[in-house]
């Protein structure tokens, strides 16, 4: 029996709520940072194969700006904030007031790179503090790291832990988008929370649904 067998629809609802609360806080932070309206969609919580996971970010070789941090403490796992390059460019252009900024230029301007790092820092921090408040679990994030690279190369890092017990992963996926840009694949940002297999139980216990 694997940990996946024990997950019920009530559990999935709890995980959805985590995605909801976490991303809502992050979207609010992003909105006030950029002074623009940010919308988010209802979180998706699903068990997917590793290859289905690749499709979630637009394909394994899709170029993205990816922020990754690991969470340790009462719950462990990987947290990703993924933006398509176009949208990352747009946010950073706004943030540093430089319309010529482009992540595809090499070398990437240091100011833009650190702005993206800071953006990831703030957003993942808001997501995780909401998660911690909601569950009363102590979680300690590592400093976020930024990579401009292929989605598959980035997200597979978060699959290492789960791949030791399964070929599927439970993904808590919340999509955000700028209201005036519409919700299309090219501008969609994703928060992916990939908990380590052993951590689901801690979360369910903390919320009284074990």
């Amino acid at each position: 029996m694997t940990f996946h067998d024990k997950i019920t629809s009530l559990h999935l609802d709890v995980l959805k709520e985590i995605g909801n609360i976490g991303a809502a806080h992050a979207a609010t932070a992003l909105s006030s940072l950029l002074n623009t309206k940010i919308d988010m969609r209802v979180p998706k919580v699903e068990m997917v194969s590793f290859n289905e996971m690749m499709e979630r970010g637009g394909g394994a070789d899709q170029a993205v700006a990816g922020i990754y941090l690991r969470i340790e403490g009462d719950a462990k796992g990987g947290m990703f904030f993924i933006l398509p390059i176009e949208q990352a460019n747009h946010f950073i252009q706004k943030l540093i007031r430089d319309e010529s900024f482009d992540f595809r230029q090499t070398p990437v301007s240091e100011l833009g790179f650190s702005a993206m790092q800071e953006l990831g820092n703030i957003l993942s921090g808001s997501y995780l503090s909401a998660l911690s408040d909601f569950t009363s679990l102590k979680i300690y994030p590592t400093p976020p790291a930024l990579s401009i690279d292929m989605f598959g190369a980035i997200i597979s890092f978060g699959l290492i832990e789960v791949s030791q017990v399964s070929d599927h992963v439970i993904v808590i996926d919340t999509t955000i988008y700028e209201e005036n840009m519409g919700d299309t694949e090219t501008v969609r940002g994703h928060f992916f929370l990939l908990l380590d297999p052993d951590s689901f139980e801690s979360i369910f216990r903390a919320l009284g649904v074990s």
């Binding site: 690279d149 292929m150 190369a153």
Partner: peptide
């Protein structure tokens, strides 16, 4: 034959 998005893999 092709595979995409190798990171640590």
């Amino acid at each position: 034959i092709r595979t995409s998005g190798l990171g640590s893999c």
